[in-house]
C-alpha cells in the first residue's frame, strides 16, 4: 500500500512536470495566459504525510519546472511557500475536521474542494508573479496576470481533477 502511494506520487510528479512544460507553458492563450496545472500535485498530495518531506518535494517540483522554463527559482519559491502554508489553508477550509484520521479529500463537499484549490492557486500566483516582475511599477499588469492566469489554472485543474478523480487519498 505504501509502495503504491509512492509510485502514484512519482508518476504524478513526472507527468505533471511534462504536461506543464510541453503543453501548458506553450499555450499562450490570449497572448499571456499559461495555466500552471502542476499545482494539482499539491492539491492531491496525501494529507497525513510528513510535512518536511512534502516541503522538499514541492521545492523539487517547482525547481524542475524552473529548469525547463528558464525562470531560475520563481516556481520553486512559490511552490515551497504554498506547501508550507497548505495546513493553514486546510484548517481554514475544512475546519478542525481535517486533523482526524478518517478525513479524506474525496469525502469533503465540492465547494470545499474548490475553495481549497482556489486558495492554493491564488497564493501561488500572487508570489510567482510578484517575484517574476520584481517591482511594483507594473502593478496593473501583475494583477491582470494573477486574475486571468489564476482563473485559467482553476478551470483546468478542476477539469483534470474530475478526469482523474478515481479514489484519491
Amino acid at each position: 500500500m505504501i509502495n503504491n502511494s509512492y509510485f502514484i506520487n512519482i508518476l504524478r510528479f513526472t507527468l505533471l512536470v511534462l504536461v506543464q512544460v510541453l503543453v501548458f507553458n506553450r499555450l499562450n492563450f490570449f497572448g499571456f495566459i499559461n495555466p500552471m496545472v502542476y499545482i494539482l500535485f499539491l492539491f492531491w498530495y496525501p494529507i497525513k504525510e510528513n510535512r518536511a518531506a512534502f516541503i522538499v518535494i514541492s521545492f523539487l517540483l517547482g525547481f524542475c519546472i524552473d529548469l525547463f522554463s528558464d525562470t531560475l527559482a520563481l516556481h520553486a519559491a512559490a511552490t515551497v511557500t504554498v506547501a508550507y502554508i497548505r495546513p493553514t489553508i486546510m484548517r481554514f477550509v475544512f475546519g478542525v475536521n481535517y486533523e482526524f484520521q478518517s478525513f479524506k479529500l474525496s469525502n469533503s463537499t465540492r465547494a470545499q474542494q474548490i475553495t481549497f484549490l482556489a486558495l492554493l492557486i491564488i497564493t501561488h500566483h500572487l508570489i510567482f508573479f510578484m517575484l517574476e516582475s520584481f517591482s511594483l511599477s507594473n502593478m496593473l499588469l501583475i494583477l491582470k496576470k494573477i486574475v486571468f492566469t489564476g482563473l485559467a489554472t482553476l478551470i483546468l485543474c478542476l477539469l483534470f481533477g474530475s478526469l482523474f478523480s478515481a479514489k484519491k487519498d
Binding site: A52, I55, V56, A73, A76, A77, V80, Y84
Partner: peptide, 19 residues
C-alpha cells in the same frame, strides 16, 4: 524544523532569483 526547512528553501530560491 518544518519552518526552518521552509525558510532555508525559500532563501535558496530567492537567492537564485535575485542573482
Amino acid at each position: 524544523k518544518t519552518s526552518l526547512l521552509y525558510i532555508l528553501l525559500l532563501f535558496i530560491s530567492l537567492g537564485f532569483t535575485i542573482n
